[in-house]
């Protein structure tokens, strides 16, 4: 993980350096009044090297994949997070059930 990050940073630095070199090169061409046809060969090499290093870092830095199976060792929280019951379907709640025959025996009133 640490190595991958270092390599990634190195790759980014190389890419930035390649960009800076290209800007400098174009500035030089303006002075010599030549036409820009493309970056120099060493900058292209630098670009590819930077890209490769960044790719390698991006692919290795995220770490190992976790198992897709919910009960595997990787998913230690699974036992706590497993679904044990469905919610009551309250949108379809009906009121004429046995509660009508056995009303709540509490003296309940809403005081305003």
């Amino acid at each position: 993980m640490g190595l991958a990050l270092i390599v990634g940073l190195l790759g980014l630095l190389i890419l930035f350096h390649a960009a800076y070199s290209t800007i400098q090169y174009r500035g030089l061409l303006k002075i010599t009044e030549e036409e820009f046809s493309g970056p120099p060969f060493d900058v292209v090499i630098e670009l590819f090297l930077g890209l490769l290093l960044c790719f390698w870092a991006a692919l290795t830095a995220p770490g190992k994949f976790l198992s897709i199976h919910p009960h595997s060792e990787d998913n230690s929280l699974f036992l706590e997070c497993r679904i044990v019951s469905l919610p009551a379907n309250l949108d379809f709640m009906i009121f004429n059930h046995r509660g009508k025959a056995f009303p709540v025996e509490m003296d309940l009133k809403l005081r305003q």
């Binding site: 309250l90 709640m93 009121f95 509660g99 009508k100 009303p103 709540v104 509490m106 309940l108 009133k109 809403l110 305003q112």
Partner: peptide, 19 residues
């Protein structure tokens, strides 16, 4: 209010709805 309806305490449900 909904709980009161479910428990057949319709007075409480009515009061809550009024509020």
């Amino acid at each position: 209010a909904v709980a009161a309806m479910d428990c057949q305490c319709l007075d409480v449900a009515k009061d809550c709805t009024k509020v």
